[in-house]
Design a protein around this nucleic acid. Structure first.
Length: 416
RNA sequence: GUGGGUGUAGCUCAGCCGGUAGAGCACUGGGUUGUGAUCCCAGGUGUCGCGGGUUCAAGUCCCGUCACUCACCCCA
């Protein structure tokens, strides 16, 4: 027997309805702020991610699905969305018109990691990018879109963590300062290596003994240059204007190299170890790094799988689990032929309709009607056909009335 | 890549000190011939993850292996 590749979640009814609802609700939030949809390749030139995401990140060094195609080109299944968006923006000159360019995307991303709760090798993300205007109000807008999307789903148990990572002006100096501090500590070999490659990550260590060691470490937020400081303060101000609550977490770290200044993460406590349901920030040098003009951008990626898990943890089932509005129950072949055409007419009129196939008995057909989640059943037998009527039954109340066969479409529409 | 836990029906699981398998749910049919959710009755399914070992006898004990899962790491 075949099984799905390791670490890949599959969604089927009824859960798939919630999956779609989560994705579409988050997308709707982006559309409301004027973001347009962009559909991108699932795989790209490997060097795009190496350049964009950063050679030293774990994502690039050990988590990419990289292979050679038949033309001996090295390609990689996209591990994240921003690099591809930037590539497309540059390639098609989308940044030559009015700025900012506001885009959103949705779909699967791939990382070769050991699977666990909420961590998959094929993950579904919805993301937005606002490119070309370095306005802190835009950072706040992006954050507010995610916040509004989560709220629209009914989620309440999440929080927003915020910090600033500085920029090319102030981060290098801070980085050296932090390394100087870290190298004096009695760190194990692994952690020491991390201090060399990505010192900020040591601040985010989960182990209590390490946390204690770095408790007095210098923090980026205390060493921001004037420009970054002003930017950060402005973002916080706009968020407050927008009514978006946040907590500052100066030890927050991002796994992708391109982030600068504003950085944020949405965290939900009902998910176990993988608690981040979305994250993002500003990326000032990325576009230039990828060969475009020097424009900044800000965006996020939200985990659709994890957001769905968060909904489930809060007892929410977004989306309509009912498969149809009307379920047709035929008694006999003549009635079945008639109901097949009625079902077609109703569907053409926009009603969701299913029918009891397979020659089931009346009892079985009614049972199927009940399971379908339909509000109404249409029951048709020889007697009704002779009278020229059809039974319209409201399943919740059990009330049934006869309506003329000729008027069935309008009768159903009125009832709904 | 490193650890821990678990593999028995489609799903959730029970199966004691070894004696060749069970429940609930789900599914199908029936409870007078045209009405669902509750109730009652009936019905089927398992290479007990796989391979080896111990034993008269292994779902049960031992070893290996694979898969799943949780955590580290990393991140959505």
């Amino acid at each position: 027997m075949f099984s799905a590749p390791k670490g890949i979640p599959e969604y089927f009814p009824p859960t798939s309805a919630s999956f779609l609802a989560v994705r579409d609700t988050l997308a709707e939030s982006a559309k409301r702020a004027g973001y347009g949809y962009i559909e991108l390749p699932i795989f790209e030139d490997t060097s795009l991610f190496k350049r964009g995401v950063g050679e030293s990140t774990d994502v690039v060094t050990k988590e990419m699905y990289t292979f050679e195609d038949r033309g001996e080109r090295s390609v990689t299944l996209r591990p994240e969305g921003t690099a591809g968006v930037m590539r497309s923006v540059i390639e098609h000159g989308l940044d030559r018109g009015q700025l900012p360019v506001k885009l959103f995307y949705a779909g699967p991303f791939f990382r070769y990691e050991r699977p666990q709760a909420g961590r998959y090798r094929q993950l579904q993300q919805l993301g937005v990018e606002a490119i070309g205007v370095d306005d802190p109000a835009l950072d706040a807008e992006v954050i507010a879109i995610a916040d509004a999307g989560f709220r629209a789903l009914g989620l309440a148990g999440f929080r927003l963590e915020l910090t600033s990572l500085g920029d090319s002006q102030c981060r290098p100096a801070y980085r050296s300062l932090l390394q100087e501090f870290l190298f004096k500590l009695p760190l194990d070999e692994d952690t020491r290596r991390r201090a060399e490659v990505n010192p900020l990550r040591v601040l985010d260590d989960k182990r209590a003994e390490v946390r204690e060691l770095v408790a007095e470490a210098p923090l980026m937020v205390d060493h921001l240059c004037d420009e970054c400081r002003a930017h950060y303060e402005a973002v916080k101000g706009y968020l407050t204007e927008l009514g978006v609550k946040f907590t500052e977490n100066p030890r927050m770290v991002r796994g992708l190299d391109y982030y600068t200044k504003t950085t944020f993460e949405f965290v939900h406590d009902g998910l176990g170890s993988q608690s981040g349901i979305g994250g993002g920030g500003r990326y000032d040098g990325l576009m230039e790094e990828l060969g475009g003009q020097s424009l900044s951008g800000v965006g996020f990626g939200l985990g659709v799988d994890r957001t769905l898990l968060a909904c489930q943890a809060e007892g929410l089932t977004p989306g309509d689990v009912a498969r149809c509005d009307v379920f047709c129950v035929p008694l006999g072949d003549a009635a079945k032929a008639r109901l097949v055409s009625i079902a077609g007419a109703l569907r053409a009129a926009g009603v969701r309709v299913d029918l009891a196939y397979g020659g089931r008995g009346l009892k079985g057909a009614m049972k199927a009607a009940d399971k379908s989640g339909a509000r109404f059943a249409l029951v048709l037998g020889e007697r009704d056909l002779a009278e020229g009527t059809i039974g319209l039954k409201e399943l919740a109340t059990g009330e049934q009335r006869s309506v003329p066969l000729a008027d069935v479409v309008t009768a159903v529409q009125d009832a709904l």
